[in-house]
């Protein structure tokens, strides 16, 4: 586990009698793009909250960026990035203010912030928009800024919760270019998505069913194992067998 950024062993979380996450064990390596799939209600969100240091497990082990989820959850929060469609940027702050606000929260110094803000605005080609309110920008841009902000402090790992929902097909692919670039720079990417074509872009994919990991392999390996032409078919075969659902 020397080079693993996420390590879990028999990780379990119960809510009363309900076993939301049932003894999951897996590792994610440095620089890997790891797809975390599953039907609604399969336990993805609960697992992700544990890995982000927001929820204590009931039993089992887990380490994220080298920190223990039971005792070092505050350290975990400092060493990860997080982005979801529901929580991304403050709409009533400008692009520049958002970058500085989140950079500050992630602990960047004043000087670092100043440099990084300008570099980022330059790289995203947002000179003319830097002082506009984020709320006035198209969704695709918000998502790109939001991702850039989530990795501004160079975290070991970034968690992306359905980052491309509702985004147009071109922007969706540009977003994945950014994911590839980040992974290329050594940032581990942990991503959930309901777009099965995006599962193909991941190095490895796990599929959760009823709280457990029902399959985990490279996309090619999964397609071979389930004799499927694409990831959509793999997902259907596994998730159709699910006993519990979001109802």
């Amino acid at each position: 586990m020397a080079d693993s950024v996420i390590y879990t062993n028999q990780l379990t979380r119960k809510f009363g009698d309900f076993v939301a996450v049932n003894a999951i064990s897996f590792e994610v390596k440095r620089g890997e793009i790891f797809g975390f799939l599953g039907a609604n209600g399969a336990g993805k969100t609960t697992a992700m909250r544990i890995l982000c240091g927001l929820l204590t497990p009931t039993s089992g082990e887990a380490r994220v960026a080298g920190f223990d989820v039971y005792r070092q959850n505050e350290e975990i929060k400092k060493h990860i990035g997080y982005m979801s469609q529901k929580f991304s940027l403050y709409e009533n702050l400008t692009v520049r203010e958002n970058i500085q606000f989140f950079g500050g929260i992630y602990g960047l110094s004043r000087q670092e912030l100043k440099n990084k803000t300008e570099v980022l605005i330059e790289r995203l080609g947002l000179h003319d928009e830097a002082d506009k309110l984020v709320g006035s920008l198209p969704l695709g841009w918000k998502q790109k800024i939001s991702f850039s902000v989530a990795i501004l402090h160079r975290p070991k790992i970034v968690f992306l919760d359905e980052p491309t929902g509702g985004v147009d097909p071109i922007t969706r692919r540009q977003f994945w270019d950014m994911i590839y670039e980040a992974a290329h720079d050594g940032i581990t990417v942990f991503v959930t998505t309901h777009y099965m074509d995006e599962a193909e872009y991941c190095d490895r994919v796990s599929i959760m069913v009823d709280g457990a990991i029902a399959a985990l392999d490279t996309p090619a390996g999964l397609k071979h194992q389930f004799k499927a032409a694409n990831m959509d078919e793999v997902f259907l075969q596994l998730a159709r067998g699910a006993k519990r659902s979001d109802a």
Binding site: N40, E162, G166, H194, M196, D232, L236, A239, S245, D246
Partner: peptide, 13 residues
Amino acid sequence: DEPTTGVDPVSRK
């Protein structure tokens, strides 16, 4: 209006 947004592929079908 967008009844299937954020819904997994099986539930969408």
